[in-house]
Design a protein around this nucleic acid. Structure first.
Lengths: 226, 226
DNA sequence: GAATGAAATATTGGATACGATCGCCCGATA
DNA sequence: TATCGGGCGATCGTATCCAATATTTCATTC
């Protein structure tokens, strides 16, 4: 099953394109926390009307990337150590749990999918495009968890991840973090391949916890420094 | 703080009203799973244009109450035993965790708030209005968890809960479930008041697990029967 | 000079209007 | 008779336009 869930000829809607555009700006740091997003400005920038912009902003609000206040527009949500803790703690609960459920149900095809995702991530490190790396990193996590057949939990994680991504992009030494992540991914996959649920869950938890630790401590240094 | 979180002079937006209206229909079971929601029909029903209806539907999609497909409109999401398991497992991870964090930070005022929520729920059982009971049940859970200061996790739970509510409304013997819940709420609050994080977490977990068990077994009976 | 209050402006929320897509019906063809 | 293709109505996606709200500017008063 699920060889490639993405339709090849996607009938893309303007709203979806706008949402992707703004999300990329936020995640990439072009729109920092606190930045006011003006509907008219985005609309003009992309040559569309304000309607799809508003609908895109509603979706981004649900993802936690912006905060919308009535008659006052959308503002990019702030990053903070507290928020990162909130976010990563939720991931730390969900991901290790889901990977156990996934292993209990997964087919050999699912294992092959995860392996492929691992290889894609590895191959991308050399190229070093942060957006691409982020996508493939998340693709690996998704591949591990997808066989759990928990669409609702996966949707929650999807939204958590897009915010987590903002923090990952702030890292001072991305290459170092990526290399560390790659090795951890390899270890996780090895346990996964052997269907060792307990070990996979443990390694995945540590993987996420280490990344969280790194990010939170960096943020706290930044907040202390002002 | 927070005696009455609803602003007295509510500057309610049409979109919010429409979202509330449709959500109530779905949660109350008036719109069952699979029901097609026509933008024009809702708009005419409420005497508004399609714009706020569309925006409301986007919010409901983020809450998991409807599924929107491009050019094909919104459909009320289906209920199933698998979905209920997905949903309640996520709650089972998050709530016991958050209540521990809450106890570590809570003030006496927070305890008083929880006690008030408990009393409100108790008082409402006699009246038996399901919508009101559902609201107060959730208010109690929220009061317990709110001091954790985890807005992101709370937002996730909020969306999970609105779907969980659909299942709760299906229960065959609501009064029995509510009475059981009330006793459990009392026990949870007692441990909470004493700041016993481990015991509160344990009781809360069991409270949610029991409700989940009841709902899932009922659903499975229904699915088996066809 | 700071505070108050009333226009003027900027921006969002919502309504109307139009073009595009989907689904169904029905006839043509093999 | 079953399948394919075209037209038609229903519905959605988006643009344009108007109304309501928020913010800024600026004169006035103490």
């Amino acid at each position: 099953m699920s060889t490639s869930p993405k339709p090849l000829l996607q009938r893309q809607t303007v709203t979806a394109m706008v949402a992707e555009y703004i999300a990329a700006k936020i995640i990439g740091g072009d729109y920092p926390g606190g930045h006011q997003i003006r509907q008219e400005a985005i609309a003009a920038e992309l040559g569309v009307s304000r309607i799809p912009v508003r609908e895109a902003l509603l979706q981004l609000e649900a993802e936690g990337l912006v905060v919308i206040r009535t008659h006052r527009g959308a503002v990019v949500s702030d990053l903070s150590a507290d928020d990162a803790i909130d976010l990563f703690d939720a991931r730390l609960l969900l991901e290790p749990f889901l990977v156990k459920k996934a292993i209990a149900r997964m087919s050999n095809q699912d294992i092959a999918n995860a392996e492929r995702a691992l290889q894609d991530y590895e191959a991308a490190i050399a190229r070093g495009d942060p957006k691409e790396l982020s996508r493939l990193n998340w693709a690996f996590h998704t591949a591990l968890l997808e066989p759990s057949m928990r669409p609702r939990s996966m949707a929650v994680l999807q939204t958590l991840y897009s915010s987590a991504d903002r923090y990952l992009r702030l890292q001072i030494e991305p290459l170092k973090a990526q290399t560390k992540a790659l090795q951890e991914h390899r270890d996780i996959f090895e346990a996964y391949r052997l269907r060792d649920a307990v070990e996979t869950s443990r390694l995945l938890k540590k993987h996420v916890a280490d990344a969280a630790e790194e990010i939170v401590s960096q943020l706290k240094r930044g907040e202390a420094a002002g």
